[in-house]
Design a protein around this nucleic acid. Structure first.
Lengths: 179, 179
DNA sequence: CGAATTAAGTCAATATGACTGACGTAAATT
DNA sequence: AATTTACGTCAGTCATATTGACTTAATTCG
C-alpha cells in the first residue's frame, strides 16, 4: 500500500488525544445548554454573556475580536441579551461612540451558574490527576493556542477583575488586546 | 451587591481553564479548515471522514451514535463525501441492510493530512510539559467526558486498527486498501 | 476647520449544520 | 407472518455564521 501519508507517520499520530479532545469539549459545552434553553438562548449567547461578565465595560469591537465573529453575528445575539435584560449598554464616558457592555444582576447570576456548571466538570477531571495536574493542564491548553495570540489570551484569562470602563482615549484596547 | 451566586463561590471558579479550553479548542479545530475548504467541505465532513477512516467498515447507525447527530444531518454530509469519492459504501456481507463505510485512498489521504495537522499542534503543546505530561493530559481529557460513555470512548480511542469487517465472505479487504 | 477614521448599528442575501416528523423499502429477527 | 432494524429520503425549520454595502455619530488628524 504505497501511500505518502501512511508511511511511518500516520501510525504514530496521537489519535487518542485528537478524539478525547473532541469528546471532552463536546460534553464540556453541553452542560450549560439546558440552562440556556430556559431563555431560548444558545451557545452564542453563552459566549457573549461569559466574556461580558468577565470583562465589564468591554467595547463591542473588543468583544468581536475575542469571539472572532462579525458584527452582524454578534448583533442579533447581543440584542436578545439586552432585550431580555441580561446585558446593559452604556455610552462610553470619554468616547461617546462606544456602547460599553455590562451584565445586569440577572445576567451576572446566569453567567455564574453556567460557570459553576463547567467548573464542576473541570474540578472533577482535575481531582484524579497528580499534584501538579492543574498546572500541567493549564500549560497544555495554553500551548495549544496559536502562538501569536497567546499574550492577549494570557491577559484575558488572568484577569481577576477589570475596572469598569477606565476609558482613556487610547487606554482601553491595551487592557484587552495588548496592542 | 448582594448576589447569591457571587458569594464565596464565583471568585473561586477556574475561569482561566474555562477560557483556555475555549481558545485551545477553537485553534485546534481551525487548522483543518483550510484543507477542507479546497473541497468545499466543513467541519461536519471532517468529523465523518475522521471516524470512518479510524473505523473502517463502520455502520451508519454506529457513526450516528458516535457523532450524536441525526440521520438527516449525516445524510447530506455523507452523500457529498461519497459523491466526491472520499468514502465508499459497501453492503454488509452478513447483514445486507447495512452500508458499511470505508475511506477511499483519496479519503484516507485527506484524513491523514488533517490528523497530521492536528497532531503537530498537540505535539507542540505537549513538548513543553513535564515528563508525564502527555499522560496527565490524556487522563484529564478522559475524565472530562461524561462518566457513562467513558467505556465506549475508551474502546474507540484505544483502537489501533479495526479488523476489516468480519469476513464470512471474501473480498472485503479490498475496500480497506483503497480498492 | 474640514477630512478622514473609528465605533456601532443595520439591511439584504446566503451558507452550514443542525433539528423534527413522517414515510418507505429492504432485510433480518421473532 | 408480523415485527423490528438499517438505511434513506422528503419537507420544513432553526441557529449561527458569513459577505458586502450603507448609515450615523463621534473622535482624531492634517
Amino acid at each position: 500500500m504505497p501511500d505518502a501519508v501512511d508511511n511511518g507517520e500516520t501510525d504514530a499520530l496521537p489519535y487518542d488525544l485528537i478524539e478525547l479532545l473532541f469528546f471532552a469539549y463536546r460534553d464540556f459545552t453541553a452542560d450549560p445548554d439546558d440552562q440556556l434553553a430556559q431563555f431560548e438562548f444558545g451557545r452564542a449567547h453563552h459566549r457573549v454573556l461569559h466574556f461580558v461578565d468577565r470583562n465589564p465595560g468591554i467595547m463591542v469591537t473588543d468583544l468581536l475580536s475575542i469571539l472572532r465573529i462579525t458584527k452582524q453575528s454578534l448583533g442579533r445575539v447581543l440584542k436578545q441579551l439586552v432585550d431580555q435584560d441580561f446585558i446593559e449598554q452604556h455610552p462610553g464616558p470619554i468616547d461617546r461612540r462606544q456602547r460599553l457592555l455590562y451584565t445586569t444582576t440577572k445576567g451576572h447570576d446566569l453567567a455564574g451558574r453556567l460557570a459553576v456548571l463547567q467548573s464542576k466538570r473541570l474540578e472533577r477531571a482535575i481531582n484524579g490527576l497528580p499534584d501538579n495536574g492543574a498546572d500541567v493542564v493549564r500549560q497544555f491548553l495554553f500551548q495549544m493556542i496559536n502562538e501569536d495570540i497567546r499574550p492577549d489570551v494570557a491577559k484575558l484569562v488572568n484577569k481577576k477583575y477589570k475596572p469598569p470602563a477606565p476609558t482613556t482615549t487610547k487606554g482601553l484596547p491595551d487592557s484587552l488586546t495588548g496592542k
